[in-house]
Structures are given as structure tokens and as C-alpha cells.
């Protein structure tokens, strides 16, 4: 044990170092390892949680996007349908309008021709009346005397027969 003396080994100092170590172990456990490991664990958990949440949010976002796409497609379809229906309805209306206008025009034609006929008849009548007067006037000039009403009538009737 000479060598131990050369190195200055002292049991008290050995014991002191052991005690030192245990004190340090206690202090570090209390003030260093526990709080730091705790906070590390906590942070790890939080990161995991937020990653999970982010994943969920992404999933939800995807779902919503799909849904909105579906909705848009549906509404587009509906719009197309409405447009088609409107076109058809418009075409039908146009057709109907054409028909009615044609009817109106032909009606108007008929009426106009009737009116023309009536006018013609009326004109003929007027002409006849005037023609009677003219005939009498001409007759009076020719025979040089005025005719009575009775004579006038007879002459007009006779002439009328000739004319018609």
C-alpha cells in the first residue's frame, strides 16, 4: 500500500468526493435534468400535436375543395339546363308569334279587299246617281224643256235599264 501513500490517497477525501457526487447528482436532477427533460418532452408532444392538426386541416381542406368542386359542377349543369330550356321556350314563342302575325296579316288582307269592294259598290252607286242627273240635264238641253218629276223618274228608270 506504499503506492497509495505516494498518490496521497486519503479515505476521507475519497468519501468527500463520493458525497460531493451525490450532492451534485441531487442538485442536477432537481434543477437540470427534470425540468429540461420535461420541457423537451412537452415540446415534442406539442410538435406532434400540431403536425397531426396540420394533417387534419389538410384533409379537411381537401374534402372541402372536393365538395366545392362538386357543387360548382352541379351548378354549371343546372345553369346549362336552364339555358337550354330557355332557348327552347324562346324558340317556341317565336314560332307562335310568327303564326299569329301571319294570321293577322291574312285577316287584314281579307278585310282590306272587302273594304275595297264596298268602296267600289258605293262608287258605282254614286256614279249612277250622278249619271241620272247628267242624263236628265242632257235630255233637258236636247229637248229644251224642263221635265216634271214623273217624267224624270220614267226616263231615269229607262236609261238605267239600258245601262245595266
Amino acid at each position: 500500500m506504499e503506492i497509495l501513500k505516494d498518490f496521497g490517497i486519503n479515505p476521507l477525501l475519497l468519501a468527500a468526493q463520493v458525497v460531493n457526487f451525490f450532492i451534485l447528482l441531487f442538485i442536477l436532477k432537481r434543477f437540470l435534468y427534470k425540468p429540461v427533460l420535461k420541457v423537451l418532452e412537452e415540446r415534442k408532444k406539442r410538435i406532434e400535436e400540431s403536425l397531426k392538426q396540420a394533417e387534419e386541416i389538410e384533409k379537411k381542406l381537401q374534402a372541402t375543395e372536393e365538395q366545392s368542386e362538386k357543387i360548382i359542377a352541379k351548378s354549371l349543369q343546372q345553369a346549362q339546363k336552364i339555358l337550354d330550356e330557355t332557348k327552347q321556350a324562346a324558340a317556341r314563342m317565336l314560332e307562335g308569334a310568327k303564326e299569329t302575325s301571319a294570321e293577322i296579316i291574312s285577316d287584314a288582307n281579307v278585310k282590306a279587299s272587302e273594304i275595297v269592294k264596298i268602296r267600289q259598290v258605293m262608287l258605282e252607286q254614286q256614279i249612277r246617281e250622278h249619271a241620272g242627273d247628267l242624263i236628265i240635264l242632257a235630255f233637258e238641253k236636247i229637248i229644251g224643256k224642263r221635265l216634271t218629276g214623273k217624267e224624270q223618274k220614267e226616263i231615269i228608270e229607262e236609261e238605267m235599264k239600258n245601262i245595266s
Binding site: F7, G8, I9, N10, L13, Q17, F21
Partner: peptide, 10 residues
Amino acid sequence: LNMTLGLALL
């Protein structure tokens, strides 16, 4: 050596 031996024994 006291210190290292103490640690080693421990």
C-alpha cells in the same frame, strides 16, 4: 488520484 479513485469506486 483521490478524486478519480473516488469517482471510479462510486
